[in-house]
Design a protein around this nucleic acid. Structure first.
Lengths: 250, 250
DNA sequence: CGGCCCATTGAGGTACTTCAACCAGAGTGG
DNA sequence: CCACTCTGGTTGAAGTACCTCAATGGGCCG
C-alpha cells in the first residue's frame, strides 16, 4: 500500500490558493463565480496505476487535474492501444453534454482531481460565459496539440518521435515551474516506457532502443531510468525534425 | 481554366435557405442573430487545387465550408506532409482569437466558404451565447475525430487505415444526404491517392496497393479511379479493425 | 501524335516489430 | 540472510510491413 497522498489538503476548499487557479477551466472566473463553483466541486484522488474510468462507463462529473498525470487511451479488440491524451495539472477531463466516458482514463502517477458534478456544471456553462469561454479556449488548444501529435504519429521516425515527446514534456515542465525563458535541463519522466510507446505508436523495445541511442549520441543524459538531463535543448529540438525557428506553439 | 462554379448563388445572402443552416456554426442562431451574421458575412470561392491560406500567413476571417472539400495539413522542412483535418460542408475554418493560420489550407475540390470578418465574429462570440455554444460543441466533435484519427495513425495497418478512411467518408456522405439508416453503397472519393496518403501517414504506392487488395478481395468495387461501391458495409467495418458493436460515434 | 497527370504494379531495401534472453531493483517469505 | 518472484527496462537476432525507386498504363488536352 503506497503512502497517502501528501500534496493537497482535501479539505481546503479555497479556490484562491489553488495551484491551478490561473490555468484551469476556472481561470477566468470572478470571485462570485468561484463561489458558485466551490459549491459544486469536490476532490477525488487516485493512486498511480489506478483506472479513473473505462471507455463507455458512466461518468457523472467533469474535472480539472490538480496534481499528477493521467492518460486518455483507446484500445482495440486485439489489445493494441493508442494514447490520445495526456492530462497534466490544469487540464480538463470529461465532455460537457456527454454522460459516458469516451476513452479509458488512467492515473499514471498519484492524481488529484477537482470534480464538478455534471449537471450543475453544464448549467454553469450556459449561465456564466467566463467558464464557457475558457473551456472553448482550452478545447481549441487541445485540438492544436492533437493535430501536432498527428504529424508525429503519421510522419516522424522513431527517433524523432522520442525527441518530440521529450521536448513536449520539457516545455510543459518549464511552463509549470514558471520557468519561462530557460528550458528545464533536468526533469522526471512522468511516463513508463510502455506509456511512451502507447503515446508514440511504437513498441517499448523501440522506445528503449531510441532512448539508448539518444543517450549514446549525447543528446540526453540519463540518471536512473526516469530522470533525464537535457544539456542542449536546441540540440534536442533539432532531433525532433520540426522547423526550429518557425512559430512555436509553446 | 476550369468552368465557373455553378452551385451557389453568391448574391444569395439568405441564411434561411443555406444548405448548411442546421449543422454549421450558425445552427443554433435565432432569426435576429442570423440577421447580425448576415451583416458580417461574405462568400469566397476557390478552385480545386488552389491554396486557401498557408500556415503562418495572416487570416483575417473565419468561415464555414458551404460546399466542396478542403484540407488542413502540416509540412516538415524536408517535405513530409501530414493532413490534420478534412473540412467538409458545414465544417468550421479558423480559430477565433488567432490572426494567423496554423496550418496550410487547400481546396481539394471547388470550394465555397461563408466567411465572417474576424473581429466582428469574435465580438459576436462574446455577445451571443448561441454561437459560442455551437462552436464549443463543434470543436469538441473535432477533438474526438482527431483522437479517433490518432488511433488510426498510430496503431492500424495500412489495410485497416484505408478501410477506416473509406468508412469515414461513407458515413459523412450518408449524413449529408440525410440517408441516416442505410449507409451509402456508392460514393465519389473527394481525395486523390496522394491526399489519402497524406491523411493516413502512408505513401501513395501503399494506398494504391491496399485499395487494389480490397478490390481483389471484394470488399469494394471500383468504377473508374474515384467512384467506389461498397457492397457490404459491415464487411468494410470489419476491415477497419474497430470494435463493431461498440458505441459508434456516428 | 506527344506530353502531362494520376494511378498501378514490381523489385529490392529498411525501419520497425516480434520473439526471446537477460538485467536491476523492490518486495516477500523462509 | 538468501532465494524467489514480479515489474520495468535493456539488448540481440530474425521477420515483415511498409517505403523507395523505377517502369508502365490510361485518360485528357493541346
Amino acid at each position: 500500500m503506497p503512502a497517502l497522498l501528501p500534496e493537497i489538503d482535501l479539505d481546503a476548499r479555497d479556490c484562491q490558493s489553488c495551484p491551478i487557479r490561473h490555468r484551469a477551466v476556472c481561470a477566468r472566473c470572478e470571485a462570485d463565480e468561484l463561489e458558485h463553483l466551490e459549491q459544486i466541486k469536490y476532490y477525488r484522488t487516485y493512486e498511480a496505476g489506478q483506472p479513473v474510468v473505462w471507455a463507455g462507463d458512466k461518468l457523472d462529473f467533469v474535472a480539472s487535474v490538480v496534481s499528477g498525470v493521467a492518460t486518455l487511451s483507446q484500445t482495440m479488440e486485439d489489445g493494441r492501444t493508442q494514447m490520445v491524451g495526456l492530462l497534466l495539472p490544469s487540464d480538463f477531463l470529461g465532455r460537457p453534454g456527454r454522460s459516458t466516458a469516451s476513452y479509458d482514463v488512467t492515473a499514471v502517477s498519484n492524481v488529484t482531481l477537482c470534480c464538478f458534478r455534471r449537471k450543475p456544471f453544464e448549467e454553469m456553462i450556459r449561465s456564466t460565459p467566463h467558464v464557457a469561454q475558457r473551456l472553448l479556449e482550452m478545447t481549441l488548444d487541445e485540438l492544436d496539440a492533437a493535430r501536432e501529435w498527428m504529424l508525429v504519429l503519421g510522419r516522424k521516425t522513431a527517433r524523432e518521435k522520442i525527441a518530440s515527446l521529450l521536448a513536449i514534456i520539457a516545455r510543459r515542465e518549464a511552463l509549470l515551474n514558471l520557468d519561462p525563458g530557460r528550458s528545464v535541463t533536468r526533469m522526471e519522466l512522468p511516463l513508463t516506457r510502455e506509456s511512451m510507446a502507447d503515446y508514440l505508436g511504437l513498441t517499448i523495445e523501440t522506445v528503449s532502443r531510441q532512448i539508448s541511442a539518444l543517450r549514446r549520441d549525447g543528446v540526453i543524459v540519463l540518471e536512473g531510468k526516469r530522470t533525464v538531463q537535457i544539456p542542449d535543448f536546441d540540440r534536442l529540438l533539432n532531433e525532433t525534425g520540426d522547423d526550429m525557428d518557425g512559430g512555436v506553439l509553446i
